[in-house]
Design a protein around this nucleic acid. Structure first.
Lengths: 208, 208
DNA sequence: ATCAGTTTAAAACACTTGTTTCAAAAAGCA
DNA sequence: TGCTTTTTGAAACAAGTGTTTTAAACTGAT
């Protein structure tokens, strides 16, 4: 199962064969059908293992930033949330830990582009819940923001995070192309700074 | 070939069989191997048809925003550039035009996640050139920005654009999940406003 | 009309995919 | 031990993949 995790994250659903998984896991092809009932079932099993954990990590990060003692700022919230994205990345390099954890972020962007999960499982169990609590946090922290703009600025923040990671992944295959190679730490620092300024200046900006 | 374009954009490289393409094009399976020399060659042929055009469209948009008579602003540049992303999207709805054009943006995000193009073709012929001229434009428009920050803020802008389109694509499969369904027009208006504020406030922000 | 060259068509090829079969082996329990 | 149940293993299956083959059809100039 850890083998499946690793391979799915690395090559995606379609490009991972049950034979590869079986070989990596040191078991037989029939076993994975025996225990999981098919490749697809195994795929969602791998997801279930992470979805809840990562969702709670995100929600916890938000709550922690909001209920901490001391003054809470927009920057704190953004940084705390952004770090849930980069954390798995640094976890990989810190130790030769289970790579699945870090690669899972890549699998998330894969699943967004072409989904192989049961309908809406990803958005139902991850996107929507996190969006809700993050939206509330941003709303109370930035009362001057019109409520309709809250999901939009969140979309902007998440977009930066996802894209930064996707580009980082892309740069692994080609180097030196004008796009900056950012370390995770630098990544969250930049995105927090950019987004905080973006949100603060959002209200003052003219419509056009 | 237009059939290939359509199918590749809709289902990606792996999930499109030459038999499907042949059927859609009303020709034989052998023909596509006869003319293009394989599925992969056909894929890059489809890309070549768009890569140059879209790259020039982006570069033109930047130059147009920079050399226009009247006062040039950061907003103008951002809007002009952002519109090159959304333009193909609205072109689809405006008329029942070749869908390939609009779908191609989706194919771009696919190619970023798992590439099937010859090494670096996409970043060499698209990312790098556009990055260069866009970087220069931002640099002259925002002289207060430290040069090292220029690629980073561009990454943020592009990230918002790509992610907004990816999410839009995802919402086509599932509705109502907390994420706002943005029309292209609204999309560029928001991203321009957010990013302009983000860039302007970037210099003033504390480091942490 | 003849004969090159080019284009089409159906079938076959070699290979990979996910899944199933079915007998042998292992484990649990009386 | 004996017997049932659960697990494994290798092979087989059916379906799908990209590509190649081979012969027929077409094209266009002589």
């Amino acid at each position: 199962m850890e083998a499946a995790e690793e391979l799915f994250c690395r090559h995606g659903f379609k490009d991972t064969s049950v034979r590869e998984i079986a070989a990596a896991a040191g078991c037989n092809v029939a076993a994975i059908n025996y225990y999981f009932g098919g490749k697809e079932k195994l795929y969602v099993a791998v997801w279930r293992r992470w979805l809840a954990e990562m969702r709670e990590a995100r929600i916890d990060a938000i709550h922690r930033a909001m209920s901490g003692d001391g003054p809470r700022s927009l920057e704190m919230l953004l940084e705390s949330y952004a770090r849930t994205f980069t954390e798995p990345l640094v976890a990989e390099e810190r130790l030769h830990q289970r790579q699945g954890c870090s690669r899972f972020v890549e699998l998330m962007v894969r699943e967004m582009v072409d989904p192989h999960l049961p309908t809406d499982m990803f958005v139902r169990e991850m996107v929507s819940p996190v969006m809700a609590v993050l939206g509330e946090a941003v709303g109370t922290l930035c009362p001057w923001l019109e409520p309709s703009a809250v999901p939009q600025v969140i979309l902007s923040v998440v977009g930066q995070l996802v894209h930064a990671i996707a580009v980082r992944q892309m740069l692994g295959r080609c180097d030196d192309c004008g796009v900056p190679r950012m370390e995770p730490e630098q990544m969250v620092r930049h995105i927090v700074r950019f987004s905080a300024a973006g949100i603060r200046g959002y209200a003052n900006g003219e419509n056009k």
